[in-house]
């Protein structure tokens, strides 16, 4: 960069202001989560949590832990199912080039465009017949549809870059397709497995529509429903609601810290290839 130093730092200042504006609602969520009950309706609202309280977080621990646990289990289940389905498919599409592979990629692209409300209605009807409404495996299956098409596309793009020589070497060593996949392709694709897992977890963790239609009447409800009921029943205690929201945002924060560069890749995966 040839720009002179002071000018560049001036831009950093503007960048900080813009980022601050964009993230202000997030700051406000954190601020309200620490606000005392009696200050919640203060005019003007307190801009800083100077007389902060942990009461909101105590309420989370007292009331929301089961919801968080359910979300965690559903998230892990979604990750396992998604990787198990999508990694072999990505390998086949990238390296084995079967007839009909292009058509399948096309179907996957279309599948991502179906509105969630329609999927939910179809699932509801089937689950009712199958008797798996209000069960965790049912929710895991439904949540995985948020991630599987994306995951196949990511794996295909990633595994496409594995050098053919590497795979041929494995074949010469006498490895079959399955062994090649398991002991060469998967270890080499570790980064894509991480990316897919993080997104699958995040989407399942954030899901509201499948949760509210498919497990809304059950004993095991995820954190999104926890917050939703909270808003419905208890609309005075916004510090507790916002504390729950902060806790529910932790996976997103972890994703951003651990996998910053993959996040942009994930966002653009469907839009701009190469």
């Amino acid at each position: 960069m040839t720009t002179s130093r002071p000018r560049a730092w001036w831009k950093t200042g503007v960048g900080l202001v813009l980022t601050g504006l964009m993230l202000f609602p997030v700051y406000w969520m954190v601020n309200v989560s620490f606000t005392r009950d009696r200050d919640l309706r203060a005019t003007p609202p307190h801009l800083l949590p100077t007389d902060g309280t942990w009461d909101g977080y105590r309420a989370v621990i007292d009331q929301q832990l089961p919801y968080l646990g359910t979300s965690f289990v559903v998230g892990l289940g979604t990750v396992a199912l998604t990787v198990a389905l999508a990694a072999p498919a990505g390998y086949a599409l990238a390296k084995l080039r079967p007839p009909g592979g292009r058509a399948l990629s096309f179907v996957l692209l279309i599948a991502q465009m179906i509105p969630g409300i329609i999927m939910a209605m179809g699932f509801y009807a089937s689950y009712l017949t199958l008797g798996i409404l209000n069960t965790l495996p049912g929710l895991i299956l439904a949540d995985s549809t948020l991630a599987v098409p994306f995951a196949v596309l990511i794996f295909t793009a990633f595994m496409y870059g594995i050098p053919d020589e590497l795979l041929q070497a494995a074949v010469i060593d006498g490895a079959g397709r399955l062994r090649t996949f398991w002991s060469v392709v998967l270890p080499v694709s570790r980064n894509s497995v991480v990316t897919v897992s993080l997104f699958a977890f995040l989407w399942s963790w954030s899901d509201f529509i499948f949760a509210s239609t498919l497990v809304g009447g059950g004993d095991h409800q995820p954190i999104t429903l926890g917050i939703y009921h909270y808003i419905g029943n208890n609309n005075q205690q916004w510090n507790a609601i916002m504390a729950t929201a902060v806790v529910a945002s932790i996976p997103a924060a972890i994703l951003l810290i651990l996998a910053q560069r993959y996040v942009s890749m994930g966002v653009t995966a469907g839009a701009v290839k190469d």
């Binding site: 950093t12 609602p25 997030v26 969520m29 954030s206 917050i227 529910a248 951003l256 996040v263």
Partner: peptide, 19 residues
């Protein structure tokens, strides 16, 4: 900063909506 601006996109929608 560009990475930080991604936060609204990554948050669960229920979090953004209730905020």
């Amino acid at each position: 900063l560009r990475a930080l601006i991604l936060v609204p996109w990554l948050l669960p929608l229920i979090v953004s909506a209730s905020t």
